[in-house]
């Protein structure tokens, strides 16, 4: 199922398909391991529509929902 990263529920995993962000943010994302083909797991979401905690390999990252919405993923069953 195709969706964006911010729509995953905690402990769901997706494979990144495309990332639609500025080159600058894209570079930082790539450096943290967020790039097409990688598997990303939603760990948890902060309350009050706060940021998300996600995991790629051995790296855990906090990301704001607006940025996560620009990462398209394919849900892994």
């Amino acid at each position: 199922m195709h969706t964006s990263l911010d729509h995953l529920f905690p402990s769901q995993t997706g494979t990144i398909e495309t990332i639609d962000v500025s080159p600058e943010l894209g570079r930082r994302m790539a450096a943290l391991g967020l790039r097409p083909g990688r598997r990303v797991e939603m760990v948890r979401a902060a309350p009050l529509r706060g940021p998300l905690q996600i995991r790629i390999g051995h790296t855990e990252i906090m990301i704001r929902r607006v940025d996560a919405a620009k990462i398209n993923v394919n849900l892994v069953a």
Binding site: E24, L25, R28, M29, L32, P51, Q53, T59, E60, I61, M62, I63, R64, D67
Partner: peptide, 9 residues
């Protein structure tokens, strides 16, 4: 700067 912060162990 993008707010993309590593949460280290």
């Amino acid at each position: 700067e993008p707010l993309l912060l590593e949460l280290p162990p």
